[in-house]
Design a protein around this nucleic acid. Structure first.
Lengths: 185, 185
DNA sequence: ATAATATAGTTAGATAATCTAATCATATAG
DNA sequence: CTATATGATTAGATTATCTAACTATATTAT
């Protein structure tokens, strides 16, 4: 997941006139199929925009640590399974929804940084178990507080009651969409 | 934005044992800084997961049309401004939060597909205005109904009242996060 | 009027994350 | 003990991003 970044440009680039969400809502009314609920589609579009923003915020938060969200995800997964289950590349690929070849490359990156190492299984010579190195654990110790702070900062603009309502809705949303995608943690 | 896809693999790859969000919530409690609200962070994590899922759903919906969400975004922007404002590459870059060089490449892709063309400005020989071709307009006519349906499908799992509450919250969230990121449509 | 500077856009070269297809080594099953 | 399945890697592509350098054109300042 490669994501765009901040505009470092010297000059404030000319900006397109703001259309506002009304223009999109109108487009939706004009171009949605008759069987599509326009109000649902408008809400969905807003969620899509917000999703982009959420990922941008997380990217920005992680940038100083030179780690992507996917890579942090892998390190967290390994940490959470440590002592309970030895993680392999195939399992990771399956969990992340990527091909094994992609997992290899992801893991190569993490290994090159010195955050994980592979240890060949004694029972099955084809497998390697992935472990965090000391450096990997230290990285997590540094990054996780920032990561949680960034997560928390997402809902800065909402008061306690709104957060509670949102939490309930997000749980329901999560169940439904993970069911649909066949994913989940 | 390059995104992962469905697992076409022949065999059901071995899967990691499910940890469930409890494991993450516990990790949060253990590793969040003291100044971080754990409940907010947990909600933020859920939103991060859901954001990933939302983008996955949209990717899947657009895949048959051989267009990425960013590219569709560009086509929609051009369509929405058509007749009101001639869009340039710099403006697009600014709006999308990417560098001009990246916009050039994005537009090259769209031009190669025959969906847009560039028309050099007569007033200012440096500028080119981006227009939709007939094929580009037709593409939008095909894709937009699917796009809106996919947006609407995101909230399939919620009833009308929940959607209304969520909509309000998403609007507030949107305002806050766009303010923070300095982005917006 | 011209020289300096700014702007719009492109090109070149790099990186990250994904993909498919092929390959290698090891296990398992007929 | 041979055939097939599996875990992991490699090779070769694609897409989306970046920075830095460059070209052509426009604007500004002397």
């Amino acid at each position: 997941m490669v994501r765009k970044h901040i505009n470092y440009g010297k000059t404030p680039d000319p900006s397109l006139p703001r259309l506002g969400s009304e223009a999109y809502n109108e487009l939706c009314q004009q171009t949605a199929a008759t069987h599509t609920s326009v109000s649902a589609a408008q809400l969905g579009l807003l969620m899509l925009w917000n999703s982009d923003h959420v990922l941008d915020v997380m990217d920005d938060a992680l940038a100083p640590y030179d780690i992507s969200e996917s890579k942090l995800d892998v390190l967290m997964l390994i940490r959470l399974h440590a002592g309970q289950h030895d993680v392999t590349a195939s399992e990771l690929a399956q969990r992340l929804g990527i091909r094994k070849a992609s997992a290899t490359i992801l893991l190569n990156g993490l290994e090159k940084k010195g955050w994980i190492h592979r240890q060949q299984s004694q029972q099955d010579g084809r497998k390697s178990f992935i472990h965090l190195t000391t450096a990997g654990k230290q990285l997590l110790d540094h990054v996780l507080p920032e990561f949680w702070q960034a997560c928390a900062s997402l809902v800065d603009g909402l008061d306690e009651q709104e957060r509670q309502v949102l939490h309930k809705l997000m749980l329901k949303f999560n169940t439904h969409i993970e069911n649909r995608l066949g994913s989940g943690r």
